[in-house]
Design a protein around this nucleic acid. Structure first.
Length: 457
RNA sequence: GUCCCCUUCGUCUAGCGGUUAGGACACCGGGUUUUCAUCUCGGCAACAGGGGUUCGAUCCCCCUAGGGGACGCCA
C-alpha cells in the first residue's frame, strides 16, 4: 500500500479562515488516519496580493490548532522556472500553443458570449495557427475537444463533464509567469500528492488539472472536494459575516479543542457522537463519511463546544491559559480564591473573554448603572440592617456564611430577595451574578463592607 | 446565461428498501435554585415537489423547483 500524501495549499493573501482551517483539518486527519504525510504549500505566485505576514499567520494558526505539516512549507513561487520549462515543452510537443489575443480582445469576446447566452470561454481562435512564440504572447493548453473528463470524487462520487465545456486556458502569461492551474497540477505531481483535498469551488480547476496531468502522461491523484461552509444567510462565508479568521476566534476566547470539534462535525459524522478528541478523530476519520452537501456555519454550535471544553479543562490549566494568552486588566491571582472564582463562572461562559468579563467585579469595584443605583437606594434599609449585623456572619467558611445569612434573614423576618436584590447589585453591579453567599465569601468581609458603605452615605 | 455540485427538524446531522424517521445545538415548558447559569424531567420540530422501479420507498432512477459553486494573463 502506497503512503498517502495530502497537502493544504492556501494562497497567503489573508489569514487562515474557518473554511481553510476545515480543509486543512480534513487533509491532516486523512493523512494521519492513513499514517501518511500532510504537507503545506503556499501558492504565492500572485506577487501583488501574497504577503509574508499572512504566511506566518497561517502557519501559526495551523500550529495553534495542532495541525503541523510533516515537512517544511513549500513555496510555489520557487518552482516558477521549472513550470515555465514545462510549459515550453508542451508548446514544443504541440500540446499547447502560442496566442496573441489581447486582454481587450478577450474581454470583448466574453461580453459577446454572455450577451448571446453562451458560456464565456476562449474560442480557440489561435489554436491551429501555429503562431511562433514571442515575448508578450501567452501559451494556452490544448484541451481535448471531444470526449469527457471523468473522475471519481472521494466525497461526491463520479463527476463528469464534456470536454467541449472546457476551454484552452492559459498556462503561461504574457510576462512569462505560469498560472495557477498549471503550477498546481505540476506541484501536486512533484510533491507526489496521492489525495487532493480542497473545497468544491475547485471542481472546475480539477478538471483542468487532470487534463494537464494526462497530457504529461502522469498518474492522477485521488480528489476529494469538500462542500463549502456557508454563512447563516446561505451564501459563501466571507468577512462580512463577522469573525471568520482563526485568529479572531483565538483572540475572542475560543479553545482549539472546541474549534477542531466543531469544524470536523461541520460535514463529517460518526453515528450520533458529538464529542471527539483529536486522537479519536485520527482513528475514526474517513473521507467517505463526509457529507456531500454544504453546511451553514453556526455561532450557537461553536459556542456550545467552546463552553463544553471550557468546563472540561483542568481549572489550573484554564488559569494558565488566561494568564499566557489574554490581556486582563486586573490581577486574577490577587484573590487567593481565584481558582474557585474561575470555577464559579465558567459553567455559563461561552468564551474566555466572556469569563474574564464575568469575574471582573471580584477584582474591581463595578461601575453602577443609573437605574441600578436607584434600585439600590430605594431598598437600602435592608442592606443597612444587614451591615449592622455583619459581625454575626462567618466569612471564613462558605457553608457557615450561608447559614448565618439565613438565620439573619429569619431573625429579621425578611425574605431572601429583599436583601438579595439590592445586595447583589451592590456587590457585583449586575442583576445576574453568582449567589449572595458566594459573592460575600469570595469578595471577603472587608471588600463587601466597603461596597455596601459606599451606598450608605 | 452555460456547465458542475447539492436538497432529512430553524441549524449540524444519523439513516444506507420494511424505523413510532434517531441524536446534538437552539427554542419552549415543569422541577431544583435567593437572580442568571448549572443540573434534571419533558416538549416542539424534518424526508422540497412530481413521476417511475418495487409487494414496499427518506433510501434506487428520471424530471421540476430551490440553493450553492465555477466560468480571469487571481489563486
Amino acid at each position: 500500500m502506497k503512503e498517502e500524501i495530502t497537502r493544504f495549499a492556501p494562497s497567503p493573501t489573508g489569514h487562515l479562515h474557518i473554511g481553510g482551517a476545515r480543509t486543512a483539518l480534513f487533509s491532516w486527519l486523512f493523512a494521519r488516519s492513513k499514517k501518511g504525510k500532510f504537507l503545506l504549500r503556499f501558492e504565492d505566485t500572485d506577487k501583488e496580493r501574497s504577503k509574508k505576514e499572512f504566511e506566518e499567520s497561517i502557519i501559526s494558526s495551523l500550529s495553534w490548532l495542532g495541525i503541523e505539516p510533516d515537512e517544511k512549507p513549500i513555496y510555489q513561487s520557487k518552482n516558477i522556472k521549472s513550470h515555465q520549462k514545462e510549459a515550453l515543452n508542451l508548446l514544443e510537443s504541440g500540446k499547447a500553443y502560442s496566442c496573441d489575443c489581447s486582454p481587450e480582445q478577450l474581454s470583448e469576446m466574453r461580453e459577446k458570449q454572455i450577451k448571446n447566452k453562451l458560456q464565456p470561454k476562449y474560442d480557440g481562435l489561435n489554436r491551429e495557427k501555429n503562431i511562433s512564440h514571442k515575448e508578450g504572447n501567452v501559451i494556452r493548453f490544448k484541451m481535448p475537444q471531444s470526449g469527457k473528463t471523468i473522475f471519481e470524487d472521494q466525497i461526491l462520487g463520479p463527476i463528469t463533464v464534456e470536454n467541449r465545456e472546457l476551454d484552452d486556458f492559459i498556462i503561461l502569461r504574457g510576462d512569462g509567469s505560469p498560472t495557477y492551474n498549471f503550477s498546481a497540477a505540476l506541484d501536486d505531481k512533484e510533491m507526489k500528492i496521492t489525495t487532493v483535498i480542497r473545497g468544491d469551488d475547485h471542481i472546475t480547476n480539477t478538471l483542468k488539472q487532470i487534463n494537464i496531468l494526462k497530457a504529461l502522461e502522469e498518474e492522477l491523484p485521488q480528489y476529494a472536494h469538500l462542500p463549502m461552509v456557508l454563512s447563516n444567510s446561505g451564501k459563501r462565508l466571507s468577512k462580512r459575516d463577522g469573525a471568520v479568521d482563526i485568529t479572531d476566534y483565538r483572540k475572542g476566547g475560543y479553545l482549539k479543542e472546541a474549534i477542531i470539534n466543531y469544524l470536523v462535525k461541520l460535514g463529517w459524522s460518526y453515528s450520533d457522537q458529538e464529542i471527539f478528541s483529536k486522537e479519536e478523530l485520527v482513528s475514526l476519520f474517513n473521507l467517505s463519511a463526509v457529507n456531500s452537501s454544504p453546511a451553514k456555519f453556526s455561532e450557537e454550535l461553536i459556542n456550545f463546544y467552546n463552553n463544553y471544553y471550557l468546563n472540561l479543562l483542568d481549572i489550573k490549566n484554564l488559569y494558565e491559559l488566561i494568564d499566557t494568552e489574554y490581556e486582563v486588566s486586573f490581577n486574577i491571582k490577587s484573590n487567593d480564591k481565584y481558582l474557585d472564582i474561575l470555577n464559579l463562572v465558567r459553567e455559563g461562559a461561552k468564551t474566555v473573554l466572556d469569563l474574564i468579563d464575568q469575574i471582573k467585579f471580584f477584582y474591581e469595584v463595578p461601575s453602577y448603572e443609573e437605574q441600578h443605583k436607584e434600585l439600590i437606594t430605594s431598598n437600602i434599609e435592608v442592606v443597612k440592617i444587614f451591615s449592622e449585623n455583619i459581625e454575626n456572619i462567618d466569612f471564613n467558611n462558605q457553608q457557615n456564611l450561608e447559614n448565618d445569612l439565613k438565620s439573619f434573614l429569619s431573625s429579621k423576618n425578611l425574605k431572601f430577595p429583599q436583601l438579595g436584590k439590592p445586595l447583589r447589585l451592590i456587590l457585583s453591579g449586575r442583576q445576574n451574578a453568582p449567589s449572595i453567599s458566594q459573592l460575600l465569601f469570595f469578595l471577603g468581609e472587608e471588600e463587601s463592607l466597603k461596597r455596601i458603605n459606599f451606598f450608605l452615605d
